[in-house]
């Protein structure tokens, strides 16, 4: 008689002893968690169905927000359906590999039938070629560098599987040099931007979503060839507002045990603001960062905003 499959929460709890701050390893020039790098062949060979949808972001750029919006759109705004499982189970994280018995992203995907929604943080050059060959739709959410950096810093403080962030000042330098997990923010946002037309990628800005969620949700709706009523749009705006999501146990990752996500250090959903960087950067750090940014971003004109 087969053992009943473990719930996602139970699986994580059982794996707690094997959790550590995993080092980063280089995969084609991009630093990735060692658990991902060690399983790279399987990940890179993943072959999606043409009906699958990929949601891609640099870490801490509004991933969960986008996932929840998409799931609600696909389910006509039905909040209960969208609480059928934690975000990570409803929308598997493609490349994530964790100690057994936590199911890897690939294992979760194997159990699901297309059409599937899949999350990734992979830069565009590492996305499995099957997504392009099969012309899957891709939604990319990007966030201004300074707020993204602040958010990633606090995430690394509380996510005990990420490398130790160290002090804030040193972390800024690691970000600028592309030494954080999933590599350079600059390369990441530019990679998708440059390919967005050719590969039919919907490129969304966190700041635009924050400023006018209704308009941006409609952009996603049209991109996905969906049609939902104005009432449903308004409902989705409300259901995916920061404060509602923060209290949603299926979206706020509160089910992750403290041994993995120590949310007493920092909440997974911390502030969700545009402009919080002013509370973290000193003027000296801001100036130094702006100089690096100007150099790194001179070949693109992505309209990020540092405040709205």
């Amino acid at each position: 008689m087969e053992q009943e499959p473990l719930s996602y929460e139970e699986a994580i709890t059982r794996a707690a002893d094997a959790i550590q701050r995993f080092p980063l390893k280089d995969v084609q020039g991009v630093p990735l968690m060692s658990t991902i790098a060690d399983n790279w062949k399987s990940i890179s060979e993943f072959c999606p169905d043409p009906s699958d949808l990929l949601i891609s972001t640099y870490p801490k750029a509004g991933t969960t927000w986008t996932q929840e919006i998409v799931d609600l759109l696909l389910n006509n705004g039905d909040a209960q359906v969208c609480k059928r499982a934690p975000t990570a189970v409803r929308i598997p994280f493609l490349e994530i590999c964790a100690p057994p018995p936590i199911p890897s992203g690939l294992e979760l995907l194997k159990q699901m039938k297309p059409p599937r929604v899949i999350k990734t943080h992979l830069p565009i050059q590492l996305v499995p070629v099957g997504f392009w060959q099969n012309k899957c739709k891709v939604i990319y959410m990007a966030r201004n560098a300074k707020d993204n950096l602040v958010s990633y810093f606090h995430f690394d403080r509380m996510n005990l599987t990420q490398p130790e962030p160290g002090p804030w000042d040193g972390y800024i330098h690691k970000f600028m040099k592309g030494q954080l997990g999933w590599g350079s923010w600059y390369d990441h946002v530019k990679g998708y931007w440059k390919e967005s037309k050719e590969r039919n990628i919907l490129y969304i800005l966190y700041e635009d979503m924050k400023e006018n969620p209704s308009r941006e949700i409609k952009r996603i709706m049209h991109y996905l060839d969906l049609s939902v009523s104005e009432d449903v749009i308004n409902k989705i705006v409300q259901l995916t507002s920061f404060h509602v999501m923060k209290d949603n146990p299926m979206a706020n990752y509160s089910y992750i045990p403290k041994a993995v996500f120590d949310q007493s250090i920092s909440a997974f959903m911390r502030k969700g603001e545009v402009g919080d960087w002013v509370n973290h950067f000193t003027p000296a750090q801001s100036k130094m960062f702006d100089e690096d940014y100007t150099n790194q971003m001179k070949d693109v004109d992505i309209p990020f905003r540092l405040n709205i």
Partner: peptide, 11 residues
Amino acid sequence: WRNHFTVAQNE
């Protein structure tokens, strides 16, 4: 001071 004040504190 530019190494100690945040941008917000400075404002």
